[in-house]
Design a protein around this nucleic acid. Structure first.
Lengths: 131, 131
DNA sequence: CTTGACTCTCTAGTCAGTATAGGCTTGACC
DNA sequence: GGTCAAGCCTATACTGACTAGAGAGTCAAG
């Protein structure tokens, strides 16, 4: 399978796949005589793993850790759970922050009645007239 | 006021203030004979405005627009409201994404009972054994 | 007169890609 | 066999919003 097909199948851009290879997140595949990358099922699975992790918001460093942990199947998966839990609590604190933001922005918007900038409550609440 | 004091008062790092000046988000202040930046109340207000906007998640481009709009106090503030509303809907879609993430991660974590990596449900759901 | 905290400029690094330039390879059509 | 587009290659630079470091100058206190 060539890089383009792998890209389509995993919904990843070609450049991103090459980038993952460059940073060592995806194993370098063998090449055709002309230098084209030739991917197999293992690469497809590995890239799917990476994509799923990224979709869940794991950083590339975290994915590296997950890959390292996965490498030895006899190890306890407590560390994996711990990593996922740490990530979950990060997600939760981001959620809390965004909820606060939503409230503040909502209040800001309803506080303004849309007349002249001079009386704009939004700008007033934002601190002062900048620029 | 020197840059360090401005930094303390606005809870901004010194480097960030210099960065804002460099990109034109904060007016360049006069300098002392030895080249130190000398800030006044206007700079303080302007930087507070910027910080509040950043805290609310506005991008630097959006802050530039807000500053430009604020520049002419006779203008209607409909554009400002529109900008804030666009930002709010962005925040809401990020919230929705994070909520999905929270559910998925929570499910993933509870699905695993913490034994060997070989049987780890988290890794299984994440796609396959990478590395 | 020396110490230490503060300031200056300039450059490079972060994260996770994305984009571009300039050049090969492949397969289809004529 | 010629030529064209689509696909692939490397290498480099760019993004946003800072952050960090080097190396040097400035200032007040002891």
């Amino acid at each position: 399978m060539q890089i383009g097909q792998l890209a389509t199948r995993t919904e990843t851009k070609v450049e991103t796949i090459r980038y993952y290879e460059r940073i060592g997140l995806l194993a370098a595949p063998p090449r055709s005589p002309s230098g084209y990358r030739q991917y197999g099922q293992d690469h497809l699975r590995q890239l799917m793993f990476v994509r799923h992790c990224r979709d869940l918001g794991f950083s590339i460093g975290e994915i590296r850790s997950l890959q390292a942990l996965a490498h030895d199947p006899r190890q306890s998966c407590a560390e994996i759970t711990a990593l996922a839990e740490a990530h979950l609590s990060e997600v939760r604190s981001k959620l809390a922050g965004l909820r606060r933001l939503e409230r503040t922005l909502g209040r800001l918007i309803t506080s303004c009645d849309g007349r002249r900038v001079a009386d704009c409550q939004i700008l007033k609440e934002l601190g002062s007239i900048g620029g």
